[in-house]
Write a protein that binds this DNA or RNA. Sequence first.
DNA 1: CTGAATTTACAGTAATTACTGAAAATTGAA
DNA 2: TTCAATTTTCAGTAATTACTGTAAATTCAG
Lengths: 188, 188
Amino acid sequence: MTPLVRSFVAHFGEMGSRWGINRTVGQIYALIYVSQRPLNADEIGEALEFSRSNVSMGLKELQAWRLVRLKHQAGDRREYFDAPSDAWEVFQILAEERRRREIEPTLSMLRNALLEKPATEEDSVAQERMRGMHELIEMLTTWFDEVQHMDRTTLSQLMKMGSRVQKLLEFTGKVKVIAGGKTGKTIK
Amino acid sequence: MTPLVRSFVAHFGEMGSRWGINRTVGQIYALIYVSQRPLNADEIGEALEFSRSNVSMGLKELQAWRLVRLKHQAGDRREYFDAPSDAWEVFQILAEERRRREIEPTLSMLRNALLEKPATEEDSVAQERMRGMHELIEMLTTWFDEVQHMDRTTLSQLMKMGSRVQKLLEFTGKVKVIAGGKTGKTIK
DNA sequence: CTGAATTTACAGTAATTACTGAAAATTGAA
DNA sequence: TTCAATTTTCAGTAATTACTGTAAATTCAG
């Protein structure tokens, strides 16, 4: 590993432990992510000085996260792995997986809690707070769902626009009348 | 604790360990979040059956995350804590803290790596991948920054609109000519 | 100031999580 | 099929992280 790769890998190791995924797994992912070609478990173990079995476990976890993909090389029996190199794709995968693992269970818990009849004054207040949390999460995930289905050009256009969308919305409110009157079109 | 609160607290305990914050801290937060009134360390320790010192450490961490606030009660020397109950506010705090702790260090590492002259072919490829990651993170955080400064009405309007913004953008492209011609206004 | 109430620090221990090596299982070329 | 190559599993151990009790520090009413 060159110093450049080494520092990237080290950073992912440290960050990894900051959120659920452990140091080893973070390092393995980082190595694969920046690698030009798919790597096999021995190469990874050698580069990072991990035991073969540790690498195997790490790869299994990364596959469960869909962050690495198994690639077979012609005429080689060993399993090679690479990672989607497009950052936006990686972001989407991460978002989906975290949603499945963290958001959905939480929403489900909240939904159940909100169905209960509050037994006490305390319960009513608690339920109120939970309702707020539930509403926000639903709103954010619904929105994110939709955004994911937008084409990337629109998306980047929208992001570059940033808070100026606000002006667009205000402006459109006025424009609708003029344009709608002229063209017969309205914005649904 | 009522069963309702108990299950909420338990869920946060489990989820807590899934991302960096530990079980205890998650439970303390959950308890404070749904509580009607500020709680002191003894009350928390009693409700959750944690030692006094464990509660103290947990509260310190939650304060560092700005997820709980110290509130003094008149005529009581003990320290009481409550949590912002508005879910959107909590979301913003979390976003800011995670940004500071995770995003910023990563951006900084990436920026440094991108300044290096690639020593090998491998390095060039690695740098290319890092550049992609850096660009996406910059774009997302810049955008998120701006969104945070939008007023909440616009924001919720925008979210409810979801992917229909896409249509709005397309439509506006056409409308600009008509409306601009009529009113002299253009969208900056 | 003083000292009781309260919070914090920290060393020791418990619990959890990560890692290894060896053995078992699987795979696929011959 | 067979068997060597390869991957996976898992029990044991190492390392890390979480938790407790005690002692020290801090705070503030009197």
